[in-house]
């Protein structure tokens, strides 16, 4: 076969999809939407997030406005009406609050705490991980040893210790959740930054005498983003679950900031007397939130994992 023929064959082999200009983002979107379940989960997550953001406008009542709550309405089963003709779609809790409203507000707190702790932890973890990878040597080994030791203790234990010392409160649980999470980010960022650092383009940038800051932020960091996105979704689900657990144990949020975990805990005592709804519905809301985020995270991992591509 002549060289000319071979060349033509090679050109013919190029699939038509590559001929079109395809931005990484567009390919990412099309890969992601390959899974119908993940797409559904993502839409579902958007709805949940919208509910959390617009809670004050969506909730039928403000469950923490004492003027709107009457003890006479306590422990009503779902779909019941009170004397004033107000329908409680999901029933009421022990204090007579509308459960649907309580859940919507609870979702807002749970999601808010989970997401913000995830973002703060990501910022800290990124900084630490990049420092470790870029500095290398002793700095790196000291940082990674701390990360390893921290990760060898279960998250719940570390959070429990911190909250036992710090006490209750939104700020305190944020500190606890961030402490628990930062190490995961640091490890992920360091791993991918090390891979990137050894690549030729970083060497080229170093040869061009670009500043450290520019190399780290313009060259290394963007390439660490894909694994970070995966970790941030899965960790957020984890943080929401952990916050719910801690609040259920009564060491997380104070009763003035009732997250879903606290609502479930409140309902737990009524459950033994067959008043199932007070615990179940917040629980369902919690589950749906966690599972949708996990499904999105799983698909992201499949799509963004370079080893699985092709």
């Amino acid at each position: 076969m002549t060289a000319e023929v071979q060349e033509r064959l090679v050109l013919d082999d190029v699939p038509p999809s590559l001929a079109r200009v395809e931005t990484p983002f567009r390919r990412f979107v099309s890969d992601f939407t390959d899974s119908r379940i993940a797409t559904g989960a993502f839409i579902c997550f958007l709805v949940i997030a919208a509910i959390a953001v617009f809670a004050p406008w969506l909730a039928p009542t403000d469950p923490y406005d004492l003027a709107q709550v009457s003890v006479l309405d306590s422990n009503l089963p779902p779909f019941s009406e009170n004397f004033e003709g107000v329908t409680f779609w999901l029933g009421t809790d022990g204090a007579g609050r509308d459960l649907l409203s309580a859940i919507i507000y609870g979702l807002r707190i749970s999601l808010g705490v989970g997401v913000s702790s995830g973002l703060i932890a990501m910022a800290i973890g990124c900084a630490v991980g990049l420092t470790a990878a870029y500095a290398g040597g002793r700095t790196d080994s000291v940082i990674m040893r701390i990360v390893d030791i921290q990760l060898s203790f279960p998250a719940i234990l570390v959070a429990l210790i911190l909250l036992a010392i710090l006490g209750k409160g939104v700020d305190k649980i944020l500190i606890a959740l961030v402490t628990v999470q930062w190490a995961y980010y640091a490890r992920t960022v360091r791993a991918s930054a090390l891979v990137e650092r050894s690549k030729e383009y970083v060497e080229a940038a170093t040869c061009l005498a670009l500043g450290h800051r520019r190399i780290v932020f313009r060259h290394i960091l963007p390439n660490c983003l894909p694994p970070m996105i995966v970790v941030v979704t899965l960790q957020t689900a984890h943080a929401i679950s952990l916050e719910a657990t801690l609040s259920f144990l009564g060491v997380g949020l104070p009763t003035t900031e009732p997250s879903l975990g606290l609502l479930i805990a409140n309902g737990f005592e009524y459950m033994l007397s067959h008043k199932y709804w007070i615990s179940i519905f917040p629980g369902v809301a919690l589950l749906v939130t966690i599972i949708t985020i996990n499904l999105v995270g799983d698909q992201l991992r499949d799509v963004l994992n370079p080893r699985l591509q092709k």
Binding site: A244, T245, F248, L249, I264, Y276, G283, I290
Partner: peptide, 22 residues
Amino acid sequence: SILGFSLPTFWVGIMMIMVFAV
């Protein structure tokens, strides 16, 4: 097993009590 991973332990415990005990 995916469910087992993502469900919070305390909630599953509550459900177990509700189903098997209550």
